[in-house]
């Protein structure tokens, strides 16, 4: 029973650690580690669920009982469900890789442009850029040397 709980507990702990890491940590570099943890945990969980579904040993059911959960086996369409679990695992691998590649690429570009990856510095720079957009490029602040007056004729609309 202990082993069963441990086997099911490992992916749950991995996923929880990764999730908490993603939400809690502020350093973007560490998010990569958290994402890898989540991906590994997710894959392990899917493997265990597939094993459970295929009826490989009683341990998954025992492990679920530890958490107060009871499984009602589905006899019909078991092959379809197994295939779908494999598909889900494949999607997790591919999507996980896609997000990790995107994260690394963005971090590299940010490092190149700002010289640092401190979250506070990144947030401050992004906020300053946004303020600049609002303050300087805002049409209301446009400065041109003309004596034009505001009127509907300037817009092409007429009352």
């Amino acid at each position: 029973m202990f082993i069963s709980g441990l086997v099911l507990g490992v992916p749950v702990v991995l996923i929880s650690l990764g999730g908490v890491g993603l939400l809690w940590l502020r350093d973007p570099l560490r998010w990569l580690t958290a994402m890898v943890l989540i991906q590994a945990g997710g894959l392990l969980l899917l493997v265990e669920l597939a094993a459970l579904h295929a009826g490989i040993g009683p341990w998954p059911s025992e492990a679920l009982t530890l958490f107060g959960l009871h499984l009602q086996p589905v006899a019909a369409a078991a092959e379809g469900s197994m295939a779908r679990l494999h598909g889900l695992g494949l999607a997790v691998i591919l999507l996980g890789l896609a997000w990790q590649v995107m994260l690394v690429a963005v971090l590299l570009v940010l490092k190149q442009r700002t010289g640092a990856l401190q979250p506070s510095r990144l947030a401050a720079l992004a906020a300053a850029e946004w303020q600049a957009i609002l303050g300087e490029e805002s049409p209301a602040k446009a400065k041109v040397p003309t004596d034009a007056k505001a009127s509907t004729s300037a817009t092409g609309e007429h009352s």
Partner: peptide
């Protein structure tokens, strides 16, 4: 780029 970091972070949480 900073916004993408947020999307990646939260998207991973949603995915899991």
């Amino acid at each position: 780029l900073v916004a993408v970091l947020g999307v990646v972070r939260w998207s991973a949480v949603g995915t899991v």
